[in-house]
Amino acid sequence: MSEKKPKSIFIQGPISGVFVGESIAKHQSKTDIGAHALFLGQVRADVRDGQRVSHIDYSAYEDMALQKVHDIREAAFGQYPLTCMHIYHSLGTVGAGEISLFVFVSSPHRDAAFTALRQIVDQIKSDVPIWGKEVFVDGDATWKVNR
């Protein structure tokens, strides 16, 4: 059994396009991969009661979140022929239009990559203790509700 602490998934603030691009480039040496599937979650400027969302402040129960993500990873590796998997989530402030979630799954063929990606993103939303507080342009705030 691995008792070591799972690797962190958290990035302070938004996940940059450069970071995503560099993550893709790092896989050029892994030539058994035939398919990458990526999910990028972006903060929407939703309008509610005439107020537009300016940014989301993310917080998490970090120790439990890392344990849950570890479980999600292990389950997906057990179910699908995946070569590698990378998961990142923002903490702190992420502005509308910026990226807060990056899931990157690689496999020899596309079916496993697509299917695993969908499952992992759904499980991150339902099982990982992370919370988003939507802050409106006028400074009011409301706790985000996932659909």
């Binding site: 993310y58 990982v128 203790p129 919370w131």
Partner: peptide, 10 residues
């Protein structure tokens, strides 16, 4: 012991 409201990550 942790009190956890509905999650809203992503």
């Amino acid at each position: 012991v942790a009190l956890l409201p509905p999650y809203s990550g992503g």
